[in-house]
C-alpha cells in the first residue's frame, strides 16, 4: 500500500475545497428567488391607480356643484401627487362665473385646485349673460389662488370685436379682462362697421 505523500494530500484537499465552494455558490444563487420582478425606479413613474371614462363632480360645502370633470382616462401618480387626464372636459363655477375648459391633456394637482391644460387647450364662458369670449392656446394654466388663466403658445383671445394674439395672455375666468405680453397683434373685423 503506498502512502500518499503530503504534497498529494494538499492537492486533493484543494480540489475538494474548490468543488465545495462552487457547489455552495451554485445552490446559494440558484436557489434564492428573484426578489422583485420589476426594478423599484421603474415602478416610481407608474400610476398608483387609473380610471377610464371618468365623470367626477365636486361640490361646495353647501352642496352647490362646483366642478365637473369628464375624461377618457385619468391616472394618479403618488410620486408627484398629480393626476393626469386625457381629453379632459372641465366645467367650473368660480365666483358665480361658469366657465368651460377642454384640451387634449390635463394635469390636476392634489395639493391645490390648479389645472394645467396642454395641446389644443381652450376656455370659454358658459353662462349666457355675455356673448362668450374664447381663449385658445397650446397650454393654459388655471391658477386657483388668484383665479387667473395663463395662456402660452399661439395664445389668442377671441371677442366680439375680433382676435387678439400674444406670446402670453393672462386673463381671469370671466374672460372680460386680459393682459397681453409680447408680439401683440389684433385683427378686428367688425371694428368700425357701423360708422
Amino acid at each position: 500500500m503506498n502512502i500518499l505523500s503530503s504534497k498529494d494530500w494538499a492537492k486533493k484537499l484543494l480540489i475538494l475545497l474548490a468543488i465545495a465552494a462552487s457547489a455552495t455558490a451554485f445552490f446559494w444563487y440558484g436557489a434564492s428567488p428573484t426578489l422583485t420582478l420589476v426594478s423599484t425606479d421603474e415602478l416610481s413613474d407608474s400610476p398608483d391607480y387609473f380610471l377610464e371614462n371618468v365623470t367626477s363632480r365636486e361640490y361646495t360645502i353647501d352642496g352647490k356643484l362646483e366642478q365637473t370633470i369628464k375624461t377618457s382616462k385619468l391616472s394618479h401618480f403618488n410620486s408627484n401627487k398629480q393626476t393626469e387626464a386625457i381629453s379632459p372636459k372641465i366645467e367650473t363655477v368660480t365666483n358665480d362665473i361658469a366657465w368651460y375648459a377642454e384640451a387634449d391633456f390635463g394635469k390636476l394637482n392634489d395639493a391645490n385646485k390648479d389645472i394645467l391644460l396642454t395641446s389644443n387647450a381652450f376656455v370659454t364662458r358658459k353662462d349666457s349673460t355675455t356673448t362668450s369670449n374664447r381663449l385658445n392656446a397650446d397650454s393654459i394654466h388655471y391658477n386657483d389662488v388668484d383665479k387667473s388663466l395663463i395662456s402660452l403658445g399661439n395664445a389668442e383671445l377671441i371677442t366680439q370685436q375680433g382676435i387678439t394674439k400674444a406670446d402670453t395672455i393672462r386673463s381671469f375666468v370671466d374672460l372680460e379682462t386680459a393682459q397681453f405680453k409680447g408680439n401683440v397683434s389684433g385683427h378686428y373685423e367688425q371694428a368700425t362697421q357701423n360708422q
Binding site: 371677442t159 372680460e176 379682462t177 393682459q179 397681453f180 405680453k181 401683440v184 378686428y188
Partner: peptide, 12 residues
Amino acid sequence: LEIQADEAFYDQ
C-alpha cells in the same frame, strides 16, 4: 382694423 404692439390690456 389691425393693431400691433408690445403689450396690451383689455377690459370688456
